[in-house]
Computed example of a mutant assay.
Amino acid sequence: MKNAQAHSFRKARIELEHCFTCKGKAVVQGVFYELVCCDCNGSGWVMAGSGLMLSTDELVTQLSLRLQQAQREIEVLQRGPTLCGQAEYYQQNNRRGAGGSNYTGD
């Protein structure tokens, strides 16, 4: 019961996809100039599957959640590979061998 209540306090993440009309560009080509896309409210993003546009408030929240997730992934990738065990350490070049080659001690 406690676990079910905890999930209700989190903001639901909505899957987004590029708008079908403007193809994610937020504008469509008019006769003389570009017009704001009415199908996605000028954002280039719609709800996945249904293609419905989101309100501006909801769109800002969903894009913020996606940005935060992308930033976390970038930080993990910038840290580089982590050593998970002896096997990975064994495979890395430690430059202790002859001519800077890998020395494993075998």
Rank of each mutant, 00 (worst) to 15 (best):
K2V: 15
S8K: 13
L54I: 07
R72D: 04
Q69P: 03
K23Q: 00
R95I: 13
V60W: 02
E15C: 03
G80Y: 08
T61G: 04
C38L: 09
F20G: 13
L63V: 07
E58S: 01
Q92N: 12
G105S: 05
G24P: 08
M47A: 15
A6I: 14
K23H: 08
A4V: 12
M53L: 12
E75K: 06
L63G: 06
E58T: 00
A70L: 13
C40F: 01
Y103M: 06
L54M: 03
G97E: 02
P81H: 12
A70R: 10
C19P: 01
Q91V: 10
R79H: 09
L67S: 09
P81Q: 13
E88I: 13
C22Q: 02
E88V: 15
S50P: 08
V60G: 06
K2W: 09
L35D: 02
G24I: 07
K2M: 14
E88L: 11
A98R: 09
Q92T: 15
K25H: 12
Y89M: 15
R10Q: 12
C84T: 15
L83K: 08
I74M: 09
K23R: 09
R95T: 13
F9T: 11
L65F: 00
E15S: 06
L83W: 07
F32I: 05
V28D: 02
R10H: 13
A48Y: 08
H18K: 07
N102A: 13
M47L: 12
G24C: 09
G42V: 03
D57I: 00
Q71H: 05
K2C: 14
L54E: 08
L65D: 02
R79T: 07
N41C: 01
V76G: 04
N93R: 10
G49W: 09
F9M: 13
D57W: 02
K11Q: 13
A26P: 05
G30Q: 04
A12P: 11
G24H: 06
A98G: 03
Y90L: 15
Q71Y: 00
C38D: 06
K23Y: 05
W45K: 02
M53A: 14
G30H: 05
V60N: 05
V60K: 08
E17V: 05
Q86Y: 10
E34R: 07
C38H: 08
M47H: 05
W45L: 14
A6D: 15
G100F: 03
V31P: 09
Q29H: 07
Y33K: 04
